[in-house]
Design a protein around this nucleic acid. Structure first.
Length: 292
DNA sequence: TATGAGCGG
């Protein structure tokens, strides 16, 4: 590389320009020239730059392309370089580009976002309509929103109306009136919807043993949260219990679910009794009062 | 196979 003083002195007042130190003045310079490579592989690059004194200098860089480069490629690969361009590359110069950028739109299949349970329940459209559209369709039960081996036709929640919510969510206006209270006034549990108006006083102190449902034939790894998840859609659940063998710590295969409202318990019994859960057929019945 | 643990400040 050679660096020589530029032959033509600039007509600009460099002193003035240097006041703005650090400003990019390269636009004042002649454009870069590339010569070659010639048949001997010699390539020359001529460019102009400002040196530290602010003078314009001409920089000539001479390089020789190693002929060895071709030798590293296979004979066929070298041959391919001389092929005529085709397709979108037809207007490209020979050897200018080896690859083309595709503008084709490629849609990637992504069944569901991992870890987001809310997302996976929201599958747009009718599942029936999605069948046969090619590929596996993630089946999501329309009613209970769970994915898996059950679907709407077999879902115990399938013809379940809106699950009755707790009194906190929906204060029953009629019982409010019955209690003689105004809107938002306290309603004793015995006067709430589903409560037994006949039971008052000391019964209120007792733990809710009402509307107790016994569930048997549970698989060994069914835990209380699983049971709650299974029964919650029918209405407010006040307690869930799975009998555990104290010695082994394993499930004894039965449990109890208590509902706030008796109607909800009844519907749960009707729907879940005989329901296949974890490869077992559940038995769901009214529980007998606990033997003390 | 099978009907629960714990009751206290």
């Amino acid at each position: 590389m050679t660096v020589e003083a530029a032959t033509q002195p600039s007509k600009l007042r460099w002193g003035e320009l240097e006041e703005d130190d650090g400003e990019d003045l390269d636009f004042l310079l002649p454009p870069k020239q590339v010569i070659g490579p010639d048949e001997n592989g010699i390539k020359k690059v001529v460019e102009y730059k400002f040196n530290d004194e602010g003078n314009k200098v001409k920089i000539t860089t001479t390089t020789r392309i190693r002929k060895l480069a071709n030798a590293r490629l296979s004979k066929r690969a070298v041959e391919r370089r001389s092929w005529p361009k085709f397709g979108d590359a037809v207007h490209e110069d020979v050897g200018s580009r080896l690859t083309m950028v595709s503008t084709e739109e490629i849609l990637l299949e992504r069944p569901r976002a991992p870890g987001t349970k809310q997302e996976e329940t929201k599958v747009a459209g009718d599942p029936l309509a999605q069948m046969g559209k090619g590929g596996a369709v993630l089946m999501v039960c329309r009613t209970c929103g769970k994915k898996g081996d059950h679907w709407t036709s077999r879902c115990p929640y399938k013809d379940l109306a809106q699950p009755s919510e707790t009194f906190i969510d929906k204060p029953p206006t009629d019982t409010n009136a019955a209690a003689g209270g105004t809107k938002g006034a306290y309603v004793p549990p015995s006067m709430r919807a589903g409560g037994n108006p006949e039971r008052t006083g000391t019964d209120m102190r007792r733990r809710n043993e009402e509307n107790s449902v016994r569930v048997t034939n549970l698989s060994e790894d069914t835990r209380e949260p699983d049971l709650h998840e299974l029964f919650r859609p029918f209405g407010a659940v006040s307690r869930v219990y799975v009998a555990i063998d104290q010695k082994t710590g394993t499930s004894r295969g039965f449990g109890f679910v208590n509902f706030v409202n008796r109607e909800d318990a009844e519907r749960a019994i009707n729907k879940l009794n005989g329901y296949g859960y974890d490869n077992l057929i559940l038995r769901v019945e009214w529980a007998a009062p606990r033997a003390n």
